[in-house]
């Protein structure tokens, strides 16, 4: 898997994702993240209800699906645009990283990122975020979250190959409009996926997804 990197991207097949959150745990374990920091999160999006029918019976349109999200290392990252010190910057492989020496802890990137990717480490007083396990990549290994996924719902690969995947449909709820940051990620939607402008569902586990 080692090669001169251009741009890496994660893939998620939401149809395969069972919401087990092993990716979250693997990420926390690998990066030794403090309490409250979640570089990868799994949002459980659900909705629907029971509806009475004219014959006195009921039917339901309940739905639930999971979306595992980390930093998308976007093509047009809003975090790098707003960062006053240029601490948040894309490296030579397109991986958006934080220069800890330049970060002044203003948390403005946290406000701006619609994926909640930059997260504040209160102990260090700096922003932190997914770095695509660059150390693993340099050793030819997969990122920790990808290795840990038991259903192989999560994957990764070079963006120039992945972006041609016709199954990708990243405009699903509860994710934001992709036009905001042009995320580099492939998302194969769940069969129950709702469109990005859906208002019928809610995130069932907001405490696992809100800002740290």
């Amino acid at each position: 898997m080692t090669r001169e990197l251009n741009k890496w991207a994660f893939t998620l097949d939401a149809q395969q994702c069972t919401g087990c959150k092993t990716c979250m745990v693997a990420c926390k374990d690998k990066n030794n993240l403090a309490l409250g920091l979640r570089w990868r999160r799994v949002a459980e999006y659900c909705g629907g209800q029971w509806m009475p029918l004219p014959d006195g019976t009921f039917m339901q349109d309940v739905f639930t699906y999971y979306v595992s999200v980390s930093c998308n290392h976007c093509m047009d990252p809003i975090c790098t645009q707003v960062c006053p010190t240029t601490a948040m910057h894309p490296d030579e492989n397109g991986i958006v990283t934080v220069d800890q020496g330049k970060c002044m802890g203003c948390r403005y990137c946290e406000w701006a990122c619609p994926y909640g990717a930059p997260q504040f480490d209160a102990d260090a007083g700096r922003m932190t975020k997914c770095n695509f396990c660059e150390d693993y990549l340099s050793e030819g290994r997969s990122p920790a979250c990808v290795s840990a996924c038991p259903t192989r719902a999560l994957g990764f690969g070079p963006w120039d190959e992945l972006e041609k995947d016709a199954r990708s449909q990243p405009d699903i709820a509860p994710l934001p409009d992709i036009k905001i940051t042009t995320p580099c990620s492939v998302l194969v939607p769940h069969r129950m996926s709702r469109t990005q402008d859906d208002v019928t569902g809610t995130i069932a586990n907001p405490e696992e997804n809100k800002d740290a």
């Binding site: 790098t80 645009q81 707003v82 960062c83 006053p84 010190t85 240029t86 601490a87 020496g101 330049k102 970060c103 002044m104 802890g105 203003c106 403005y108 504040f120 209160a122 007083g125 700096r126």
Partner: peptide
């Protein structure tokens, strides 16, 4: 007082081209 690492504030006007926060500072 808002900054966790005020010493890095020396870099605060490094992104005048893109960041409104940089321009504000």
């Amino acid at each position: 007082a808002h900054l966790s690492n005020p010493r890095a504030g020396l870099f605060a006007i490094a992104n005048l081209r893109h960041s409104w926060l940089s321009r504000e500072i």
